[in-house]
């Protein structure tokens, strides 16, 4: 009925109404358009999905088992279907189901209220975080602890995790109250999926292939930006029993123009340990100290790209050594 009415109105809007009652026609047209926008059917020229989050039309009759099977196959992992289903079930789904059954007066005796991913989620979070720490330490051996932990924090953030989770295609598989799932839900699902995998080695490879690769093309100093590089350099130098750094103006050019350029070098024990340039001497000095840090942490621009399959120390070195001996 509503559909017919809409078709009729649409027809009127286009033909007669527009001539006789333009204002009414425009109002109806706007109403129809708003309805389309709300239902996600409005047509935008470029990249619809970013503007209107549209539910896939086949999601009404998704074959959930098939989707779960395909999910594992696609990622090249063998999941236990029961555990995978558990990992994708959020607490809100179970609560809503209980509520619904109660309101319908149906018994919820067969509904196990513990059948959600709460435990997997916790286990996953611990595992992912500990592996990331070990991997990052192996990948950036000269990086200080604060840097490693902030990189770890970045990869463990909902922002980073939800992007990975979304691109694994869990959006339609997650059982939860909200659609589309929020960033937190997506991130939690990723952690639960990691825990649902079979075996630590498999989990580690999964994290490396999907999560650690998010560091590709990222500037480490955008993620961890030491507030006062000069102070940090001084601390590190003094801790290694060297003298405090001295900054000297190496060269300057086009002073008093728009494109003034200063070049400052940092010296320690009469050796040049880094240099940088900028439009004022202060900016140049700051960038010189950042350059020193880069060289100290072996993360300068000439560094070779990150290698992903690297030797990562196992969590318990003694255990690993014993295993190797066996």
């Amino acid at each position: 009925m509503a559909n017919t009415l809409r078709q009729y109105l649409k027809h009127l809007t286009h033909r007669k109404l527009l001539v006789t009652y333009p204002v009414v026609a425009v109002a109806i047209g706007l109403g129809l358009y708003m309805e389309r926008v709300e239902s996600g059917r409005a047509v935008s020229f470029h990249n619809k999905s970013h503007l209107f989050y549209k539910e896939p039309s086949s999601s009404e009759n998704l074959n959930y088992d098939a989707e779960l099977y395909a999910f594992g196959k696609r990622l090249g992992e063998d999941f236990d279907p029961q555990i995978l289903r558990l990992a994708l079930t959020h607490k809100s789904h179970i609560e809503a189901e209980t509520q619904r059954r109660r309101s319908l007066g149906v018994s919820d005796a067969d509904l196990n209220t513990d059948q959600h991913n709460g435990l997997l989620l916790k286990a996953g979070r611990t595992f992912v975080s500990s592996y990331l720490l070990r991997h990052l330490q192996a990948a950036f051996p000269a990086f200080p602890k604060e840097g490693i932990s902030s990189l770890n924090g970045y990869l463990m953030s909902d922002d980073a995790l939800s992007v990975v989770s979304f691109h694994l295609g869990v959006k339609d598989l997650i059982l939860c109250q909200e659609y589309p799932p929020s960033e937190t839900t997506l991130a939690d699902t990723f952690l639960a999926i990691v825990a649902a995998l079979n075996g630590d080695a498999v989990r580690e490879r999964f994290i490396r292939d999907f999560l650690v690769t998010q560091l590709c093309g990222k500037n480490v100093y955008e993620i961890w930006n030491p507030a006062d590089p000069k102070k940090l350099v001084t601390e590190i130098l003094l801790a290694t029993r060297k003298s405090a750094p001295e900054s000297r103006l190496l060269r300057k050019t086009a002073v008093n123009t728009l494109e003034a350029n200063f070049n400052v070098g940092i010296y320690c024990d009469q050796r040049l340990i880094g240099y940088g340039s900028g439009e004022t001497a202060t900016i140049a000095e700051n960038s010189a100290f950042v350059d020193v840090l880069r060289r100290m942490f072996r993360l300068d621009d000439s560094r070779s790209p990150l290698q992903f399959p690297i030797e990562v120390e196992s969590p318990d070195p003694i255990h690993a050594r014993l295993q190797a001996r066996e």
């Binding site: 990622l75 990975v164 999907f210 998010q214 590709c216 992903f308």
Partner: peptide, 10 residues
């Protein structure tokens, strides 16, 4: 998408 192929191809 997702640096596909850096880790594994999907």
């Amino acid at each position: 998408p997702l640096y596909n192929g850096v880790g594994r191809f999907v």
